[in-house]
Design a protein around this nucleic acid. Structure first.
Length: 439
RNA sequence: GUGAUUGUAGCUCAACUGGUUAGAGCGUCGGCCUGUGGCGUCGAAGGUUGCCGGUUCAAGUCCGGUCAGUCACCCCA
């Protein structure tokens, strides 16, 4: 047991697990591309101020969950706890909004200083999408559709899309008042947390799981009762759009989210398999965020989808298929063969443009051990080169799955041509696939 | 941040009420099966029982602290 360990709430990802991440990420890039989204990469840390202003200074994230530090220049910096504010900052910094609507996505880490538990880590990974410049309900539908496509691609069961509208900046004060009028008379009966929320952010009471709050929440006024005509029409249009393209959803009048910047549409994809951290994807519209960070009034919609939680769901449905056997192991026996194999190995690796792994077990090991290592390394085939083969100018091409083999006549003097022959043989054995399937 | 619970070889787990050199399976490495891997067989390496301290003649077993895992609360991906 090493004294050095990964910090609490962080994790290493290594083979074979890392292959699942790569496969998922490949899928993500492909789906984002199909929806016309371009990747944006922003720094892992930002000025603390950005999150305070963007996410809201009374949110839990800003109050107690940020990894904040002071650098040597005395600046207060924070590891990003969410990714929408940084994207907006980048957009404004490079004046990208002046060239029209922007469709952007990102994949990577974010950080929150919380006690780890199932589905919650201090460093986690997320795929997120932000669509700027469209206030129309079609944009809400587009973003939800994108997330839905990813879930559908993996046939994830037990997922529900929960949807709500929390109105816009103009609707908000009236609703706040209505909630205060509703909860204030029962102040003493509410949970301690909810009494605090009454002061700071009454909306969040709706999210409480405390049993003592439940009765009061159940008959609290909902936003849907008080929406302005415009917000109402927007919400109805989003729902109609989802219906039109066959995305099932349920309206959840109590759904509120943890960031202050949301307006109108908020949504979550929840799973019944993830314990209490059951939101796999959450998002919504934020029509006022860009302006509040100093930019031109620009509507936006987006979501964040947790990669750890997504992978956990795949585990849950028993999707951890055994990694497919792939690649060629070069086996060399004897000094002459080893010398030739050095060039052959390099030629195979250079020639191959479709990602066939080429490995070799170096050293004087006998055939048995080299085959054993090839087997353990999950190679699909082995190419054996010994004194007999060198003398006859052939190579033994062995199928490690069928346990059969044949001799390929090759010009050993030319490593390049030999490599081509071997790869041609291998391609018949195992055609290339577009996507790694090991997820 | 709060609470509960767990922490023994790379992995999964043993070790009666505290009692001699902490065991097994899998994995790893090596031998045998005379250039052919999944089987078989023989053998080896590998642990300051998370860490620190305490109680005791004696601690993997009890107590405290600390670190980490797990689960829940809070909140969220």
């Amino acid at each position: 047991m090493s004294k050095l360990a990964a910090p609490r709430g962080t994790a290493d990802v290594y083979p074979p697990e890392s292959a699942r991440w790569q496969a998922l990420e490949a899928r993500i890039h492909a789906i984002a591309r199909r929806f016309g989204y371009g990747e944006i990469r922003t720094p892992v840390f930002e000025a603390t101020e950005l999150f305070v202003r963007g996410v809201g200074d009374t949110t839990d994230i800003v109050e107690k969950e940020m990894y904040t530090f002071t650098d040597k220049g005395g600046r207060s910096l924070t590891l990003r706890p969410e990714w929408t504010a940084p994207v907006v900052r980048a957009l404004l910094e490079h004046n990208l909004l002046s060239s029209g609507p922007q469709r952007l996505y990102y994949v990577g880490s974010f950080f929150r200083h919380e006690r780890p538990q199932k589905g919650r880590y201090r460093q986690a990974h997320q795929f997120g999408v932000e669509c700027f410049g469209y206030g129309e309900p079609e944009a809400d539908v587009e973003v939800i559709h994108l997330a839905y496509e990813l879930l559908r691609a993996y046939r994830i069961p037990g997922i529900v899309l929960r949807l709500n509208s929390i109105g816009d900046e103009r609707d908000r004060p009236a609703y706040r008042e209505a909630l205060l009028r509703h909860f204030e008379p029962h102040r003493d009966a509410l949970s301690e947390d909810s009494r605090r929320r009454l002061e700071r952010n009454p909306l969040r009471i709706l999210d409480s799981k405390a049993p003592e709050d439940r009765a009061f929440i159940a008959n609290a006024p909902t936003f849907l009762d008080l929406l302005s005509a415009e917000s109402r029409a927007h919400f109805d249009a989003v729902r109609a759009g989802l219906d039109a393209i066959g995305i099932p959803h349920q309206v959840e009048p109590r759904l509120v989210r943890g960031f202050d910047y949301y307006t109108r549409t908020v949504f979550e994809f929840d799973s019944e398999f993830l314990g209490s951290q059951n939101a796999i994807c959450g998002g919504g519209r934020y029509d006022d965020l860009v302006r509040s960070l100093g930019g031109p009034p620009t509507p936006g919609v987006g979501f964040g989808l947790g990669l750890e939680r997504f992978l956990m769901l795949l585990d849950e449905m028993g999707a951890s298929a055994a990694a497919e056997r792939e690649g060629i192991a070069v086996v060399a026996l004897g000094a002459r063969a080893r010398k030739l194999s050095l060039e052959l190995l390099a030629a195979l690796r250079r020639r191959d443009d479709a990602g066939v792994p080429i490995i070799q077990d170096y050293g004087e090991a006998k055939l048995e051990r080299q085959l054993k290592r090839a087997d353990r390394a999950n190679a699909r085939a082995a190419v054996i080169l010994g004194d007999d083969e060198v003398a006859a100018s052939v190579v033994v091409a062995r199928d490690l799955v069928a346990r059969t083999q044949s001799k390929l006549s090759v010009p050993l003097a030319s490593a390049e041509v030999t490599a081509d022959e071997i790869l041609r043989w291998y391609r018949e054995l195992r055609p290339a696939t577009a996507f790694p399937e090991a997820v």
